[in-house]
Amino acid sequence: MSTRIDARFAELKQQGRSAFVTFVMAGDPDPKTSLDILKALPKAGADVIEIGMPFTDPMADGPSIQAAGLRALKGGMTLRKTLAMVRDFRKEDNATPIVLMGYYNPIYIYGVDSFLADAKTAGVDGLIIVDLPPEEDTELCIPAIKAGLNFIRLATPTTDDKRLPAVLANTSGFVYYVAVTGITGSAAADSKVVGAAVARIKRHTALPVCVGFGIRTPEAARAIAENADGSVVGTALVDVLKGSLDVDGRATPKTVSAVADLVSALAQGVRGAKQAAE
């Protein structure tokens, strides 16, 4: 099985550069603006797109992404509409990998089998589900792999060498290294420490390793890009989106461009990196 994720990382490897992965919340601040942002991301330099599935109780997210999820839910976003958004995106872009990221309950309630079928049809390539560790692989991970989707696991500073093989066992697409113990939007990790952690994970797997949590600026993105196969930026994008809204929290004409401009600047940072770590 090869997905758009595998193809994209193979392509980037040939070009000798690190991936830039962007995170946006589906439906934030409303479904239409959110789709426009999604469509603008590849042009602005996103190599892989993570789309947050809004959830009322995101226990691993900081205040920015919590608020983004609540804005989306208030705007009427549902998991069904998130899949519809991916379907609309796919009408124009059949190459950029899409990874859905979120929590298990909405998927469990949707029904695992129908969710996987609908996600695959919509053009989703992978899933990152924060509250499904390897101990719960029978819930969604194994069915997802059977359905032809990548199941991307989070590895963290607390995932030691003894535990890494279990974490990597059913992981495909890439490994998402959470650079700090903490929630999204936490302070940045030192890029040298991150480099050592990425090297440690790479001793256990041939998969690309992307790094997220705490990356906000082009400089930070470049420093991470020099030490990893990709860098993930989420909270900074969500914050700039929020800053573009009017006093009632509605989108303004500046919303899409505000996000796209930051993505461009961050992508420049990533592309300015020296060859990614091997």
Binding site: M59, A60, Y104, V130, D131, L132, P133, P134, E135, E136, R153, L154, A155, T156, P157, T158, T159, D160, R163, V167, V178, T181, G182
Partner: peptide, 20 residues
């Protein structure tokens, strides 16, 4: 041994917490 009472229970937590 996996913390289940019938279908209920389990360990649905972020990886950061799992080793602990």
């Amino acid at each position: 041994e996996r913390g289940h009472f019938g279908i209920f229970g389990g360990r649905f937590v972020a990886e950061t917490l799992m080793p602990l």
